[in-house]
């Protein structure tokens, strides 16, 4: 199961504003986005993140997995995470 490394020094505020100091880019995230990114920063792997989504949110495992895949794809596109 995939593990992801989140780029260091990301500044994420509770309001969903993300600043990437290395590149000067900024992003906005919704609450689920923040949740996933924080879990990844804690070092959780794909399975663990998906499981915690299912535990805390009103979502089934398939949906969570599909959305997670799409979200990771966007994070990768923006160089915010790398597969380890």
């Amino acid at each position: 199961m995939s593990n992801y490394i989140v780029s260091s020094n990301l500044a994420i505020s509770d309001s969903g504003f993300l600043f990437y100091p290395a590149t000067g880019e900024s992003f906005t995230l919704n609450q689920i986005g923040i949740f996933i990114l924080n879990k990844l920063r804690e070092g959780k792997d794909e399975n663990a993140v998906i499981q915690s989504l299912v535990d805390e949110y009103d979502v089934d495992k398939n949906t969570a997995e599909r959305d997670f895949t799409d979200f990771i794809y966007q994070l990768k596109q923006n160089n915010l995470v790398q597969e380890s």
Binding site: S13, S15, F17, S26
Partner: peptide, 11 residues
């Protein structure tokens, strides 16, 4: 400051 930019972007 970044704070200002954050305010306008998020709120």
């Amino acid at each position: 400051d970044l704070k200002m930019f954050e305010e306008i972007t998020v709120k």
